[in-house]
Design a protein around this nucleic acid. Structure first.
Lengths: 234, 234
DNA sequence: GCCCGGCCATACATCTGATGAATCATCGGA
DNA sequence: TCCGATGATTCATCAGATGTATGGCCGGGC
């Protein structure tokens, strides 16, 4: 195994075993390199790699620290990784979302506080306002509101791993050309209706209903995309 | 933004835009560094980082290549990332598995070929044989068989993203001390029974039944772990 | 006494150049 | 034809030097 890979493993082990805890500062490059028995250059490659996946946080002039290592931090690496997939994988991702989001939404119907649920209302209505204006900026805002709406509900499940996963899986779906097409065939109105329905189900504390609407919501996007790919090709 | 981070983004863009395709070879370090306007050292850090998440594959004496970028390749980064979480996150992970695996199992009941389902039988029976002997080596084999059983079914869903995700989420569960404890209270027998039940449901092509058994199976582990943590502490 | 701005030690960022090691293709001999 | 030696290519690793951002110390002013 390459020295750098060895270093990655060593640092990982230091964290896993608890020798290094979240927030801890690593020895300075020169010292750590010496301790691990390799050059600064090679060590830096290891640190940079662990930095990319958000395990380490390097601050010039300050030092290198272990991140919080919380699920929401580590799992957004998933989003980065998914960026590399082509549109063909979007369908598979969407299928996974169709499994996870309804479950999360049902959980949220039980777990979210009344205040949290109420605050979702603004997102739903913002969405509505935007659709009325219908300009391009508005669409971006709509997209952001949609993402935030789903993010809040996922968080409402009470499971940070689930929430982060959903969040990561949502990004590539939206980044793809999906929305451009969707907004062209008045799917905007349908999306808003479904968001409202989900919101209502949460207010009513009806997990099953919330789950069903979430499924309908995702399946709608999925079905449209399936048709779109079928006709438009790659 | 740091030069190296810039380089990471540039290389990522080259791949996302299709300038670099899976399997393609990158220009040699010196040339690419020159083209991106940075030193070889800095470029190497970028390449190493992308190599850690399985986007690039560096081969000494040969060159640097873009990997297949298939979901199963990219998503096993998730497993690496999850290694950094403590046992406290295992419950959250398990909860996600309880959502994903039943769904995948139900899909598998529809999608898997008769031959694939039949081949699962050997895994189930291997499991049984091992439990009879009951030695330590046997337990490791049992663990491997369990992992393989779930992996095959996940693959049987026909969705590689789903399969990879499940696979990645399974690893940390098993790596934790979960199994050590589970095997101590004759949960082995129950596990085997449940595997057999899932297998039977697949043979019968009963998605709902398969889903239910999968839920029961995961929930069993989950419940045991919850109790275990409650009593044993960190 | 408190606050603000500059100075400086520290630590990461980046570059350059050199040497070692693995791989692959080529070429010559059996 | 097959196989092993050889050399070119490319990554692996190191050492040392210089640039740059950060944080804290310290002194002056209010």
């Amino acid at each position: 195994m390459a020295l750098t890979d060895e270093a990655i493993k060593r640092i990982k082990d230091m964290i896993v075993t608890g020798e290094l805890r979240p927030g801890d500062r690593l020895p300075k490059e020169a010292d750590l390199a010496d301790r691990l028995g390799l050059s600064r250059s090679s060590l830096r490659e290891a640190v940079r790699a662990l930095s990319l996946i958000r395990v380490l946080d390097v601050r010039q002039g300050d030092g290198t620290y272990v991140t919080s290592l919380r699920p929401e931090t580590l799992l957004d690496t998933v989003g980065f990784v998914l960026d590399f997939h082509g549109d063909d994988s979007v369908l598979y991702v969407l299928e996974v979302r169709r499994i996870l989001e309804p479950a999360a939404t049902a959980m949220a119907a039980r777990m979210m506080s009344d205040r949290e649920i109420e605050s979702l209302g603004s997102l739903v209505s913002v969405t509505g306002d935007v659709s009325a204006s219908g300009d391009i900026d508005g669409l971006n805002e709509l997209l952001a509101a949609d993402l935030e709406f789903h993010r809040r509900i996922a968080l409402g499940s009470g499971n940070p791993v689930l929430a982060s996963l959903i969040d990561s899986l949502s990004a590539p779906t939206l980044r793809s050309r999906v929305w451009r097409g969707l907004t062209q065939e008045n799917a905007v109105a349908r999306t808003i209706e479904q968001h409202q329905a989900i919101h209502q189900a949460l207010i009513a504390r009806e997990p099953d209903v919330a789950r069903a609407w979430a499924t309908v919501h995702i399946a709608g996007v999925e079905e449209w995309l399936r048709r779109s790919i079928g006709t438009a090709g790659a």
